[in-house]
Design a binder for these strands. Structure first.
Length: 392
DNA sequence: GGTATTTGACCCCG
DNA sequence: CGGGGTCAAATACC
């Protein structure tokens, strides 16, 4: 399926090129989108953000490809497509008819194999942790990184006060997106969420405003948008917080990044690109492919929206080398999860140069194994049939 | 009616 | 053996 990946990559890169061009020739671009009137700064930000997202996506895909290359040595035939093949496991009492056809054992075996397969696959996926800090700890909602996730489990974790939520990309079926994340609220600081991502998004998530508008659609006020102000406030507050919690030590040259970004957030490995104030997200994907996700009004704001300024979050970012052990997180704030940065140094290869490609990926090179044939099972078409993934 | 979440069981791994 | 991750039926939601 590399062909598919590469194709996707090319497509994304094409987007990027176009966007970059737009940055260079505002005049021309101005014609199409953004008739908002006040172009200029906002316009550039919008485009820059798109570009940023695009690059992030490209990086993600490229990484996957690279990983795949390193991984299997190309071989590996694997029962891949079997996404929906699940014998019904005698989970619940209802599957009474399990007696017919296959035995429970068979079902179990099948399940096992499949599971094993996924495990194997998962193991090779890049994994990193980020800390999201929400302004209001009392709120229940979890931070929204802009991607759409579907919760598939929750578990109480030993020693943790709060349960851990398991999510996977909504488009897992439709597009075979392998991304998953685990969200766990820190028991030390209610406002902090540890989010462990695994696997980069390979899906085309075209999210639009509409979604955000869903709850409390404060139609983008035509005039001095408050978002700017809010953002500023937010940043301000954040800064204070930051200072308060930890002396502003020279940012570790390593993987840890902490950026309080506003809305958009594309790949976990987002660059410290503090630019975009949030003007109504420009029509993202100009190429249909799309852009990442800029926008999104994080749901942890109460619909009341009164505290719109809180719709932002700050976060830490850390890469977790495989093998677990060292899970280095550099966080200002929490006493709880303040592991020391370790090894990994290697990884810092990262370019944390905002200038560089609108986004330095401070994402360490990843050379893991990844199922060579992964992302795009040609099964587009339908994804519904919700009993969940089953063929039928 | 289609989706997303909940929730208890199942499975793998340390 | 138990913890952690996932599955999938049931349920809630829109």
């Amino acid at each position: 399926m590399d062909g598919g990946d590469i194709h996707l990559l090319l497509s994304i890169l094409a987007d990027g090129e176009k966007q970059a061009r737009q940055l260079g020739e505002p005049a021309a671009a101005a014609d199409d989108e953004y008739h908002g009137g006040g172009r200029g700064e906002e316009y550039y930000r919008g485009v820059a953000r798109q570009l940023q997202g695009t690059l992030a996506r490209a990086m993600g895909v490229a990484r996957a490809i690279e990983a795949a290359a390193f991984a299997g040595g190309g071989g590996g035939g694997g029962a891949s497509g079997s996404r929906g093949t699940t014998g019904d496991r005698s989970d619940s009492p209802r599957s009474a008819d399990e007696s017919s056809g296959r035995t429970a054992r068979d079902a179990a075996v099948a399940q096992q194999e499949r599971h094993h397969d996924t495990i194997k696959r998962r193991k090779g996926l890049p994994r990193w942790t980020e800390k999201f800090r929400v302004p209001d700890a009392s709120l229940e909602a979890t931070p929204d990184d802009g991607f759409s996730w579907r919760k598939y489990g929750q578990k109480d974790i030993l020693g943790a006060k709060f349960p851990r939520g398991y999510y996977r990309c909504t488009y897992r079926n439709a597009q075979g997106c392998p991304a998953t994340k685990q969200v766990q609220r820190s028991d030390a600081d209610l406002a902090v969420f540890d989010v462990t991502y695994q696997g980069a998004h390979t899906c085309h998530q075209k999210q639009r405003r509409a979604a955000a508008a869903g709850d409390q659609p404060p139609p983008p006020p035509p005039q001095a948008d408050p978002s700017v102000e809010l953002l500023v406030n937010f940043r301000h507050g954040l800064k204070v917080e930051t200072n308060g919690l930890a002396p502003p030590p020279p940012p570790p040259p390593t993987t840890t990044t902490n950026f309080h970004d506003d809305q958009h957030f594309c790949f976990p490995s987002m660059p410290p690109f503090h630019a975009g104030v949030g003007p109504p997200p420009p029509p993202d994907d100009a190429l249909g492919g799309g852009g990442c996700n800029n926008f999104s009004s994080p749901p942890f704001v109460s619909p009341a929206g009164s505290a719109a300024g809180e719709s932002y979050f700050s976060m830490e970012h850390s890469y977790e080398p495989r093998g677990g052990g060292g899970h280095f997180v550099m966080s200002r704030g929490d006493s709880s999860e303040l592991h020391e940065v370790v090894s990994a140094a290697a990884s810092s290869s990262a370019v944390v140069d905002p200038a560089a490609a609108g986004g330095g990926f401070d994402y360490p090179l990843y050379h893991g194994e990844v199922d060579p044939h992964l992302p795009f099972p040609p099964l587009f078409g339908h994804a519904s049939m919700y009993g969940q993934y089953r063929d039928a």
